[in-house]
Simulated scan of single mutants.
Amino acid sequence: MTSLLKRASRGDQSAREELYPHIYQELKRLASAHMARERAGHTLQPTALLHEAYLRLIESRDIDWVGRGHFYATAAKVMRRILISHARTHQAGKRGGGLQRVDLDQAFVSTPEREPILISLDEALSRLELESPRAYQLVELKFFAGLSFEEAALALNVSSRTLKRDWETAKRWLYRELQGSRQFPNEDKEGNG
């Protein structure tokens, strides 16, 4: 698969045609998982998200594919960025609004009211990538690509036990980052949220 990816990204049409059936089902699963967290009535459909992400991935000539896990993690990132871009466009001119309490895990579910949260979360993830690249990669692999700890550990070449600690650290770090966001209120006194 890696050699097909490299050939396809260099413009080899036969490699693109050979690659597509091998990755279609997994990309469809990723797109469906992303769209399941989106608001009702979203204008993008999973198939459209899949195709847009595939085109961006395959047209990218600056990625040196290192394997299947790398491809799917990158695909999840591209899909997330497509949806964030869509949310930003949708929110243009709709600034403000009331605060609402949202758990970190629920922040990934999109509704028109939560689009500012998704944008804040995307910005926090960009900061996490600078602060701790492995923790960022873990969030990409675990949450957005749907890999297990064991699969992510193989992709990142570390133990699943280490990644479980990284996961807890990443969740706490993201929550602290988002506490200051106007769209993501502070934790209450009981520590819920």
Rank of each mutant, 00 (worst) to 15 (best):
Q91T: 06
P112S: 11
F71H: 09
R39W: 01
Y54V: 14
S60Y: 05
H70R: 14
S110H: 06
G93P: 09
L55C: 13
Q106V: 10
I58V: 15
H42T: 11
I82R: 05
H34E: 09
L27I: 01
T89Y: 02
G41Y: 09
T89C: 00
E59N: 14
A48G: 07
A92M: 07
R88M: 10
V66H: 12
I84S: 02
E113K: 11
A40V: 09
P116W: 02
M35G: 02
I119P: 13
Q100G: 10
H86E: 11
D103V: 10
K94Y: 06
G41P: 11
L57I: 15
R37M: 07
T89P: 00
Q91N: 11
R101C: 04
L104R: 09
I82S: 03
L83W: 05
D103Q: 10
I84D: 02
I119C: 12
A87G: 04
E38Y: 00
D64N: 14
I63C: 02
M35I: 03
H86K: 07
L44M: 15
R114M: 02
D62G: 14
R101N: 08
A107P: 07
G67F: 02
M79P: 05
R114Y: 01
L30P: 06
A75W: 12
R68Q: 15
V78M: 08
Y54T: 15
V102C: 13
A36P: 12
R88C: 05
H86Q: 11
G98E: 13
A53N: 03
S60E: 10
R88W: 01
Q100S: 09
H51Q: 14
A31F: 01
A48C: 02
I63V: 15
R68P: 03
Y54W: 14
G98Y: 07
S110W: 01
S60N: 14
A75M: 10
M35V: 03
T111Y: 00
A40W: 01
L44T: 04
Y72F: 14
L118G: 12
T89R: 08
M79S: 04
Q45D: 04
L118W: 04
Q100P: 01
I117P: 12
S32K: 10
H90E: 08
V109M: 01
F108E: 13
E52D: 15
H86W: 05
P116A: 05
Y54P: 00
R68V: 14
P112Y: 00
L104P: 09
M79N: 01
I82K: 06
R29T: 04
R29Y: 02
R37G: 07
G41N: 15
A48R: 02
L104V: 11
S85N: 07
T47P: 00
I119A: 10
L49C: 06
A92V: 04
L49I: 06
P116L: 03
P112W: 00
R114N: 11
T74C: 13
A92K: 08
G96W: 03
H70S: 11
M35S: 07
V102W: 13
L50H: 12
M35R: 04
A31K: 01
I82L: 09
R56P: 03
R61K: 15
I119R: 10
E113V: 02
L27T: 04
H42Y: 09
R61F: 06
I117G: 00
D103A: 11
T74N: 13
G98A: 10
